[in-house]
Simulated assay, not measured.
Amino acid sequence: MSVAMKLSEPPAAASWKGSSLELRDLSLAYGPIDVLRGVSLRIAPGTTTCIIGPSGSGKSTLLRGINRLHEPKSGDVLLAGRSVLKDKPDALRLRIGMVFQHFNLFPDHSALENVALAPWKVKGLPKAQAMAIARQRLDEVGLGQRADHRPRDLSGGQQQRVAIARALAMDPEVMLFDEATSALDPELVKGVLTLMADLCRRGMTMVVVTHEMGFARKVADQVVFMDEGEIVEAGPPAQLFDAPQSPRLQRFLSEVL
């Protein structure tokens, strides 16, 4: 899929100061079942890492471990060079934003209110300041004219843009995207991918679980292929897509490309 690097409705020219992220021998289990096994990965500040792999390979679980939605069994997560596993999860989530497959917007609140709630209620900013930040973030994702619309009056792609604006309103150092386009109709996917590409261009550190191989090839600084809870292969997009080394990655690409 071809991904344009500019939005059809250009956002404000704000840049982001992403932080580095490092996983050291990270393992995670659901009860007796090991889901992640010894995952180590370095992500430089201001870069985009796309994670690909078959269903059930541990991709989404990896994001949940980074953001402490599920506590790691062992290993470490370093943000800007410092371990965050002893921090309170809520404090960590002020620094690492996450966008899910489903939008999870409050149906009885406008787009503006959905974006402003976390800066106001969680971060403790004055309501007027939170609303001003929310309006700016909606402008950046091309939805300034729909700030007063409720989710039911927005398309799926617009709702996902609101969800992205909501995460950005917390000024995160890293953004995690968990199959952010998988719940969208095909004609709505390009707009969300274009927005994500724009965030990449402006310096946000991003970890993107995706099945959009064209996006990964064009936008990612590194691509990570996971299978059975482990990293099988990682490297620049051209290396993984054009010269895969592992037979497992070769089989996967033969099925999805």
Results as ranks from 00 to 15, higher is better:
residue 4 A to W: 11
residue 5 M to S: 14
residue 8 S to L: 14
residue 9 E to R: 10
residue 10 P to M: 08
residue 12 A to G: 11
residue 16 W to A: 03
residue 16 W to L: 07
residue 16 W to H: 09
residue 20 S to F: 00
residue 22 E to G: 04
residue 23 L to C: 02
residue 23 L to N: 00
residue 25 D to W: 06
residue 28 L to M: 12
residue 29 A to T: 04
residue 29 A to M: 03
residue 30 Y to R: 01
residue 41 L to K: 06
residue 46 G to T: 02
residue 50 C to S: 15
residue 52 I to E: 06
residue 55 S to D: 11
residue 56 G to S: 07
residue 57 S to Y: 01
residue 59 K to C: 08
residue 60 S to G: 13
residue 66 I to S: 02
residue 70 H to F: 03
residue 75 G to V: 04
residue 80 A to E: 05
residue 82 R to P: 08
residue 83 S to A: 13
residue 85 L to N: 13
residue 85 L to P: 14
residue 85 L to T: 14
residue 91 A to D: 12
residue 92 L to M: 05
residue 95 R to K: 15
residue 98 M to L: 06
residue 103 F to E: 00
residue 109 H to T: 08
residue 111 A to Q: 04
residue 115 V to M: 02
residue 115 V to L: 04
residue 117 L to A: 10
residue 121 K to G: 09
residue 124 G to E: 07
residue 124 G to D: 08
residue 124 G to C: 07
residue 124 G to M: 06
residue 125 L to E: 09
residue 126 P to S: 08
residue 128 A to R: 09
residue 130 A to N: 07
residue 141 V to S: 00
residue 148 D to H: 10
residue 152 R to P: 05
residue 152 R to S: 12
residue 155 S to F: 10
residue 157 G to F: 10
residue 160 Q to V: 07
residue 161 R to H: 01
residue 161 R to L: 02
residue 162 V to I: 04
residue 165 A to E: 03
residue 169 A to N: 06
residue 178 D to F: 07
residue 178 D to Y: 09
residue 179 E to A: 15
residue 181 T to R: 11
residue 183 A to P: 06
residue 186 P to L: 11
residue 187 E to A: 15
residue 190 K to I: 12
residue 191 G to H: 07
residue 191 G to D: 09
residue 191 G to I: 05
residue 193 L to Q: 14
residue 193 L to G: 11
residue 193 L to E: 10
residue 196 M to W: 04
residue 196 M to I: 15
residue 198 D to N: 11
residue 202 R to Q: 10
residue 206 M to A: 09
residue 209 V to P: 04
residue 213 M to I: 14
residue 213 M to E: 13
residue 219 V to Q: 09
residue 219 V to N: 09
residue 221 D to Y: 13
residue 221 D to H: 15
residue 225 F to E: 03
residue 225 F to V: 11
residue 229 G to H: 01
residue 230 E to Q: 15
residue 236 P to C: 15
residue 242 D to H: 13
residue 244 P to N: 12
residue 247 P to R: 11
